[in-house]
Design a protein around this nucleic acid. Structure first.
Length: 671
DNA sequence: ACGGCTCAAACC
DNA sequence: TGGTTTGAG
């Protein structure tokens, strides 16, 4: 069967860059004395030495493998250095690795479209850069080829016996009679070698890379020669490469699908797939998967490199295995508070650094019932609009949990007649998704708010009725207990100050303005916890800190920016009736438009020209009293990015009463 | 009833 | 749509 030939116009140069045992490298950069030693990163040392999550290549030589316990690793390799991942709030804290990953991304994103595939992997589309190089300074014209380039592995490269390896590589790269595809790959090789050197120089991290005509092949190649090497898959090498490649080695075939191919179709290698017609594969695995399988058997993968440098969601979770399973509401709440704190902190960072806002909060849990037959029933996930602020996230997360728990336990959940049927929670996680950019045209708005915030008034007793909007499924049947939170307004002279701005029409729904020092979490010693009454569903835990996150604070002290407004604007809860009324008019456009705007991201703004995010909010959805207070210039600016979007699809549906995040910042006017 | 913690995407 | 499942590192 022939391998499909890509049209010359379609030829792309794709690279997959994979950091070598990344967490280990991060720790070795922090502790240089560990360099060169067999090292592993381990989390939670308590039980059997903790679990390994990254293993250095020195340690791998001694037979240490990921998925070993710390103790086993010690046994296999007595001299191994075990480094623990940082712990914060009683759970693993991966922020160190996240930011290290960002360092790498920011370097790799320079030469073309870049997709952050995971914390330590990126895809690059180097087509344009390679074409430019081919036009301006083709490899064959170069008199000097970098050493790193010459160390590249070129699949299928014939090697003359007498020739040195590097000489063969040089010859291949500089061939004048190569076809265009190979020449473009040669340019890719040079570019990637240069990028990897730059990553090493600027971050001290080594990485490996694959260079090919599509993502699938590039990914395959990056793992073939590790660490600190790069591998190229010329078009001519594809067929042979795939013919003997075990299906389970392919990107999406490592799981059940790959197993099914083996057991149901007798397919052991990707090459074996060539025997099956497209329709045959579609019969077995559906239209999409079938076609996809047919294509990958031929080395075809049209998947584009997404221009996305930032994650699409943030999550914070923890497992409570075996005897540690949670069995009381109060411990669940404690852990949800911890997880919510971390999540909130990361949302704040995302807001500050990337000017993005998340709009959905989701709670996941895993559970079992000790007494019951259907003890393996899935614990349902629940989501609701995300409101910024630690205590709000904590409160909403807990309410989501309780809603899910009732559903999980059924109608007789905690009735007295029930004979001790009880639940255990073995895992909890909270996550934030539907992250969108703050519109770019807010600069004058920001200046306005900065100039306005001269003397914020402090609220004496902001007692706010605070409802949590629940998803329809959560509210139906077992109605969710609406929480009533006494808004904690605390004044501290030296550290953070919480201000409240009046919302003129609704004086009981004020806007919190918290100076930046307030937002960041702090070492536990500085935390003041106001006791929480669990049973009455009141959550008033408030965290204080005096730590700063950046030097902007000095200048902006007491001068909240629009960022602070977004961060701390108290959601004005919509009553059910209000929500429904509102939804008939505007919720449709709001929702539909939100999903479309979620496609925009930082990278698109950098690579293509920046497109104004259209929030799709009508002016009259903004509290009129707030709006009227703004100068005409600001009003115009607001109109420009809040203007209703006509191109959206209105065919669908009525609103379902849920609200998106922006509605919390600019709640509908109650007339 | 341990591999822990994240993420993305397809699916219905 | 939200919620589930799958798969990945």
């Amino acid at each position: 069967m022939p391998v499909a030939r890509p049209e010359t116009s379609d030829v792309r140069v794709i690279a997959h860059v994979d950091m070598d045992c990344f967490y280990v490298q991060v720790e070795q950069r922090k502790q240089p004395e560990l360099r060169g030693l067999p090292t592993a990163v381990v989390q939670y040392n308590e039980w059997q030495g903790g679990g390994l999550i990254a293993v250095s290549y020195e340690a791998r030589k001694c037979g240490v493998k990921r998925s070993m316990r710390g103790d086993e690793a010690k046994a296999a390799c007595p001299e191994i250095q075990l480094v623990q991942v940082p712990v914060a709030r009683g759970k693993a804290d991966l922020n160190l690795y996240r930011s290290a990953g960002s360092e790498v991304v920011s370097i790799l994103a320079q030469s073309g479209k870049c997709e952050r595939a995971s914390i330590d992997e990126v895809y690059l589309d180097l087509t344009d850069a390679a074409e430019s190089m081919l036009a301006d300074a083709p490899p064959e014209s170069l008199e000097l080829i970098d050493e790193e380039v010459l160390k590249s592995h070129i699949l299928g490269m014939s090697r003359k016996d007498g020739d040195d390896f590097k000489e063969s590589v040089r010859d291949w790269i500089c061939r004048k009679d190569a076809d265009r595809r190979d020449k473009l790959l040669s340019c890719g090789i040079i570019i990637v070698a240069e990028l990897r050197k730059q990553v090493l120089k600027e971050t001290e991290f080594t990485c490996s890379a694959g260079i090919a005509h599509n993502k699938m092949l590039a990914k395959l190649a990056s793992g073939m020669n590790k660490p600190a090497q790069q591998t190229v898959v010329p078009y001519s090498a594809v067929q042979e490469l795939l013919s003997s490649l075990p299906v389970k080695k392919m990107k999406q075939l490592g799981g059940k699908l790959g197993t099914s191919l083996q057991t149901d179709l007798g397919v052991d290698t990707v090459g074996d797939l060539l025997q099956f017609s497209e329709t045959k594969l579609q019969e077995h695995y559906g239209i999409n998967t079938g076609t996809w399988l047919w294509n990958i058997a031929r080395g075809i993968s049209g998947e584009e490199v997404q221009g996305r440098l930032l994650p699409k969601s943030h999550g914070s979770g923890k497992t409570f295995p075996g005897p540690r399973a949670l069995k009381s509401l109060s411990t669940v709440q404690h852990w949800l508070n911890q997880l919510s704190e971390e999540l909130s902190e990361r949302l704040s960072s995302d807001l500050e650094l990337n000017k993005r806002i998340a709009s959905t909060l989701t709670l996941h849990a895993s559970a079992f019932k000790s007494r019951d037959s259907d003890s393996h029933k899935k614990f349902p996930s629940k989501s609701c609009p995300l409101r910024y602020g630690v205590t709000k996230i904590q409160e909403d997360a807990f309410n989501l949990f309780q809603a899910a728990l009732r559903e999980y336990m059924g109608p007789f959940g905690s009735k007295p007649g029930n004979k001790q049927e009880t639940w255990r929670i073995t895992g909890l996680s909270v996550s934030a998704s539907k992250i969108v950019d703050i519109p770019s045209g807010t600069s004058s708005i920001m200046r306005y708010f900065q100039s306005q915030s001269t003397a914020p008034s402090r609220s004496a007793d902001g007692c706010v009725q605070d409802h949590v909007e629940m998803t329809p499924s959560a509210t139906e049947g077992c109605s969710v207990q609406r929480s009533t939170e006494a808004q904690a307004i605390i004044h501290e002279e030296d550290t953070g100050v919480t201000y409240t701005l009046p919302n003129f029409e609704n004086p009981d729904k004020d806007i919190d303005l918290v100076s930046k020092e307030d937002v960041v979490s702090c070492p536990s010693s500085e935390v003041t916890v106001i006791p929480t009454q669990l049973e009455s569903n009141r959550s008033t835990q408030t965290k204080r800190t005096g730590r700063k996150i950046n030097n902007q604070n000095e200048k902006n002290r007491g001068m909240p920016s629009i960022v602070d407004i977004f961060k701390n604007y108290n959601a004005t809860p919509l009553s059910k009736q209000e929500t429904q009324e509102d939804s008939t008019v505007s919720s449709t456009s709001r929702r539909a438009n939100f999903s479309s705007s979620s496609h925009s991201n930082k990278v698109n703004q950098e690579v293509e020209e920046r497109r104004e995010t259209d929030w799709g909010y009508k002016i009259d959805e903004i509290d009129q009293s707030v709006f009227d207070e703004l100068p005409a210039e600001i009003q115009r600016e607001l109109r420009s990015f809040l203007h209703p979007n006509k191109r959206l699809n209105t065919s669908k549906s009525k609103g379902d009463g849920s609200t998106s995040s922006i509605a919390h910042y600019f709640p509908p006017l109650n007339r």
